[in-house]
Simulated scan of single mutants.
Amino acid sequence: MATYALPRALVTLALAGTIAATAATPVTAAPRAVSHRSAHSATQDALDAITRAGTPGALARVDRANDVWHGTSGVADLRTGRARLPQDQFRAGSLTKPFVATVLLQLAAEPEYGLSIDDTVDKWLPGVVRGNGNDGRLITLRQLLQHTSGLYDYIKDDGFRAKFTGMEFFAHRYDGATPSELVRIGLAHRPLFAPGAGWSYSNTNYILAGLVVESVTGNTYATEVERRIITPLGLRGTTFPGTSPSVPGPHGQHYSTLYEDGPGTRVHDVTDFNPSVSGASGEIISTARDLNVFMRSLVRGRLLPPAQQKEMFAGRDIGDGRSYGLGLRSQTLKACGVKVWGHSSEIPGSLTRTAATADGQHVITLNRNSDWGDHALEQAAVEAEFCGPRHH
């Protein structure tokens, strides 16, 4: 679940009467895990700015040649004051998408499966996409992966938002949903445009992409991602939890305002919930280290043959110096002109951003354990890392 508008920059920190702090008095930053301070001081300052603005805790990891840097700010747990740790696992939401896109492209490179990314959705999911002007016979797999299908984003459905991101969350946090149910929510709405005629980010696309992986291989997308990516790359902190509501391993709490707004807005602990409501569009749990390893391997061409690599990185212009390939977004940073590839995510209680240079020599993942705040602060951290004095 990754594309909500978040209007708040600051909120009052209060959780069901038990967690109390104010935006005017931000959580005191815990001791930082910082090395190479002079090389990454601007990035650390950007993390501190995130927590000063009201996020309980933020962390980042940078991988460069002969240089690994960890930065943390704030706390992982408002009750105990435990610091964020470099090895913390967190819900990484739409970072699921480049994993799923990579698997589909791998399948397209393996002749025994008979799959092309220009196949129609209907070839692999006959009759699934129908109704209200939606027609899987006219939509290709490429259009799913690049968000040019025109399909409505099920997460924007008012009923879905109320149950899983609004104040009904606590009554429904363990309900979950099947992929078919999520697709039906999206198809209850008319398409935004004819296939290929525009661009609009839609999580419905990747729920369908996950179903295509299952149709082609006979295995779930999670099984294929684990077999093809997680195990070969040694991503020990990365899991697809399915319907399990908990975050395994060391982790901070995940905090949300559940889309309340205004004075006295409360923060709620939303760490536990059934992530099947995100499925192939956003259920992944990972670590900053694992996401850096994955993104570096991906941009360096270690996961795809050259033809599929070229397809993945052929971006569609989406404005403001940004483009969207197949499961990956690129951005030319305004501060210095450096182009980075990666993805961002928003899921209840967690915001994540991963960005890498095209040669994979410089990669950052940052996470904050909240789902509100000014996204310019995350952008500032990326700009600080890639455009600091050392990198001009």
Rank of each mutant, 00 (worst) to 15 (best):
K310R: 15
A335N: 05
G237D: 07
V183S: 11
F160I: 00
G360R: 11
T365P: 05
P263Y: 10
G325A: 11
L15E: 13
R130I: 09
S350F: 01
Q253K: 11
H251D: 02
F160Y: 12
A108W: 11
L59E: 03
E168Y: 03
W124I: 01
E181T: 07
G337N: 05
L377A: 02
E226K: 13
V103R: 06
H343E: 03
S200F: 12
Q331R: 10
S200K: 15
C336K: 12
A384N: 04
G282Q: 09
L291D: 15
H391G: 00
I318K: 13
A76G: 15
T178S: 14
S297D: 12
K123H: 14
G133A: 10
S278R: 07
R390T: 00
E168P: 02
T178A: 07
T354F: 11
H70N: 15
A24S: 11
S215D: 01
H147V: 10
V68Y: 00
L59Y: 02
S35F: 00
N274T: 06
R266V: 01
T120I: 10
V34F: 13
D175H: 08
G321C: 06
P248W: 05
D135V: 12
T3R: 10
K310E: 14
V129W: 13
R130F: 05
H362E: 08
L6T: 08
I318H: 12
G159F: 00
V121L: 13
P195Q: 14
V11Y: 01
A307N: 08
D261H: 08
W341V: 06
Q361S: 09
T148N: 14
F90Q: 04
L258I: 03
V299D: 08
S330D: 11
T178H: 05
V225M: 15
N367G: 00
L6P: 00
T140Y: 15
D374R: 02
V129M: 13
A9N: 03
G264T: 09
R300Q: 15
V68D: 05
T12A: 13
F170A: 07
A9Q: 03
F160M: 03
A209S: 14
A288G: 10
R316S: 12
L377P: 01
Y255K: 00
